[in-house]
Design a protein around this nucleic acid. Structure first.
Length: 719
DNA sequence: GAGCACTGC
């Protein structure tokens, strides 16, 4: 086959695309909805008029031709272009999907986006949600394998589907939306697509797979290069101009500068709401307080200023307040009031607040960092990237022209900030990603085509951990245990813990613990009610284990009648959103356990109490890689990495046990270990004799104890 | 004796 033939075929396809495009218009004007066979509703016609005005419509034929000609197309679409709702529809309307056979999938990084976009698109297409158009997110599959032609799903969900369908055979076309966010799942999916696309060419077993990668920022060119020079199309957006101001000198205290700027805007600028970006809950509450005080100082004549905090752990009712309208003038004909929202990064991507005209950007956010040497992920306040700064300022121009005040110098913006934020894959542990890739059949991790390859040390660490856990054998091949672990939507350590828990007769308890650990903090401790919160928690405390403390709270919750749960949570300082999502997670995990034949057994005695030794053994069996031992100075030292750590003051553990295993490492004022369980030298030696080598152990009481245990173990084994 | 940005399966 000569290349001229190929080119001819491509041109034919492009012609087809054009022809079909015309029939599409004809079909729409015929007034019959091809998906339902019914006449279009008047609502459809009126929405269509709005849709046709979206900037992306001008690019419809160009886009469809590019997709017809290429397996991968990259689209750089600004906010307000309509790309997310319209492009998947274009693909479906031109015939890329056939009910019951193939569909177009569109990924989103967040669940709310997947569900709300699906709802909107179903409305635009005048079809029933869950039939022609559907969505799939964890815990919820609103799609129909026989009818759905357009499915919105979270990127993590598509990755999970790939585990049982490595060629993504049910899709004829995949749209990766918000690719610039570079979530862990998006990055893994892109690498996977690089492997799958050559096997899904035209005429292949599962038919041709088309991919459309959509990015909102300048790094679309990076995507283009990564995908072997795929065509890049730019779709303009529809937003209002935002004037950007910098400070003349660097600000020493960004918190103080931010509150001062907010007050100044209220005093001097025209009407419009203010959005302030800060890094965390504590900072935000403090800033809110100071802005309120500042507004009071302005006297009675000033117009009203209402201040709302916004961060994810805020109860939903309080989160919703940010959408309430700004207060009106105090007197008839007076100056209107103003709303200030002080927010974490949540307002940068996840939540959009209309009516924001002023943005205050101090230039920082909390970011996850991973240190492979000590195998610890932690949060660090760090400077944001230029891309992030642009995204933040864009929040001021959604409804009319706005202003953005950057609390750093223009020179700093250009010289000190990175162009883009490091993708998550460079800031995370890789153990779960590696397990997923192995499950997907990718054995050669070194040559796997990551857009940004993680550090070799990070991958080595992941392989090492998976080998210790028994998920990979010494050759790096997946074991049966590893295959089971990959089925569970958990960190490998937690998967291993769950799978092995029947050996300790406590899988019912471990599944509750694991579920409670995979949701946000269950115990609340508001600063103004700290004492009452501690007292409430005390009724659940097991002073040998934070994990068991969590279990006690969860198990009590399960027994509270549905109708009383909300009050019970409130009275006991329990985060009800968290604990009820723990219940959903537990339900999902139990379903998978059933499928994998992992028996559900309880260690609960007739009197209702748990066999806490059994639970602590099960915890130790999977967490021994995070062990610390007591030193005479009163601190703990981690095994292998020799990090000096302290048990977090919020821990249930009240004495100083010789040996502990811990869940996380928080680098704050000190190196704290959080969620800690007391363990025993004899368990460690028995469960992980390969891990605790005495050769490299510093002289300490703990070593003497280990020596003794080794001798006992040796005696048992020779007997 | 102190503090957990945000997602996702």
């Amino acid at each position: 086959m000569g290349s001229s033939t190929d080119r001819k075929r491509k041109l034919d396809l492009a012609d087809d695309a054009k022809k079909q495009n015309k029939t599409l218009d004809a079909r729409q004007s015929s007034g019959i909805n091809p998906w339902t066979g019914k006449a279009y509703s008047s609502r459809y016609q009126s929405i269509l008029q709005t849709r046709l005005k979206l900037p992306v419509y001008k690019f419809q034929s160009e886009l469809l031709e590019a997709v017809a000609d290429n397996q991968i197309v990259v689209i750089e679409g600004e906010t307000g272009s309509g790309k997310t709702t319209q492009i998947p529809q274009f693909l479906v309307e031109i015939g890329y999907a056939t009910p019951g056979k193939s569909c177009v999938g569109c990924t989103q990084p967040r669940r709310v986006a997947a569900t709300s976009i699906a709802t909107r698109v179903a409305e635009e297409m005048d079809v029933t949600l869950g039939k022609t158009v559907g969505y799939t997110i964890r815990f919820e599959d609103i799609s129909d394998p026989n009818e759905t032609v357009l499915k919105f799903l979270t990127d993590g969900m598509l990755l999970r589907e790939a585990m049982s369908d490595p060629f993504l055979s049910r899709y004829s076309c995949i749209v990766l939306d918000e690719a610039h966010e570079r979530t862990l799942a998006t990055d893994v999916l892109m690498g996977l697509l690089m492997e799958v696309l050559p096997k899904r060419k035209k005429g292949s077993k599962h038919g041709e797979l088309k991919v459309v990668v959509m990015s909102a920022t300048l790094d679309a060119e990076k995507f283009q290069a990564y995908f072997g020079g795929a065509p890049l199309m730019k779709v303009p957006g529809r937003t209002f101009p935002v004037e950007v101001f910098y400070t003349a000198e660097p600000e020493r205290n960004y918190l103080e500068a931010a509150t001062r700027t907010a007050i100044q805007i209220h005093q001097c600028e025209g009407p419009g709401d203010i959005l302030v970006f800060l890094t965390g809950e504590q900072e935000i509450e403090q800033a809110c307080e100071e802005i309120r005080l500042g507004a009071q100082d302005m006297g009675k004549d000033a117009s009203e200023l209402v201040v709302y905090p916004l961060y994810s752990s805020l109860p939903p009712a309080q989160q919703r307040k940010i959408f309430s309208a700004a207060p009106g003038p105090k007197v008839v004909g007076g100056k209107p009031g103003r709303k200030v929202v002080v927010s974490t990064n949540i307002a940068e991507t996840s939540l959009t607040i209309d009516g924001i005209v002023y943005v205050i950007d101090p230039g920082f956010s909390k970011q996850k960092v991973y240190n492979p040497r000590i195998r610890v992920e932690s949060l660090l306040v760090s400077p944001i990237s230029r891309a992030s700064a642009r995204q933040r300022s864009g929040r001021a121009g959604r409804t009319r022209p706005g202003k953005c005040f950057r609390l750093y110098t223009e020179q700093s913006f250009h010289n000190d900030l990175q162009e883009t934020t490091y993708p998550e894959i460079l800031r995370s542990k890789m153990s779960n990603v590696v397990l997923t890739l192995k499950k997907l059949g990718i054995d050669d991790l070194v040559h796997f085509d990551f857009m940004d390859p993680p550090a070799p040390e990070t991958l080595m660490r992941a392989l090492e951990v998976l080998n210790y856990l028994g998920a990979l054998d010494d050759e790096g091949d997946m074991t049966d245990l590893g295959r089971q672990m990959a089925e569970l939507p958990l960190d490998p350590q937690l998967s291993k813990m769950l799978i092995c828990s029947p050996d300790y007769n406590c899988s019912d308890e471990i599944v509750s613990i694991v579920a409670s650990m995979s949701v946000p903090q269950i115990f609340l401790r508001p600063r103004e009610n700290a004492k009452a919160a501690d007292e409430a928690k005390a009724q659940f405390v097991d002073n040998t284990s934070d994990h068991i403390t969590l279990l006690n709270a969860y198990a009590t919750y399960e027994e509270i009648p549905q109708a009383e749960r909300r009050d019970w949570c409130w009275n006991n300082f329990i985060n009800d959103r968290s604990i009820s999502s723990a219940e959903s997670v537990k339900k999902q995990l139990k379903g998978i356990m059933r499928r994998l034949d992992i028996p559900l057994v309880t260690c609960r005695g007739a009197n209702g109490s748990f066999d806490t030794n059994a639970i602590r053994m099960a915890l130790t069996s999977a967490m021994y890689m995070q062990t610390a031992y007591l030193q005479s100075a009163g601190n703990y030292l981690t095994v292998k990495d020799n990090q000096i750590v302290y048990v977090h003051p919020g821990s249930s553990i009240d004495s100083k046990p010789q040996w502990v295993v811990f869940e996380e490492f928080a680098l704050t004022s000190k190196n704290y270990i959080r969620t800690v369980t007391t363990t025993r030298g004899e368990w460690l030696v028995e469960m992980a004799p390969h891990y605790f080598d005495l050769e490299n152990f510093p002289e300490c009481e703990a070593k003497d104890e280990l020596m003794l245990e080794y001798k006992k173990l040796a005696r048992r084994m020779t007997r």
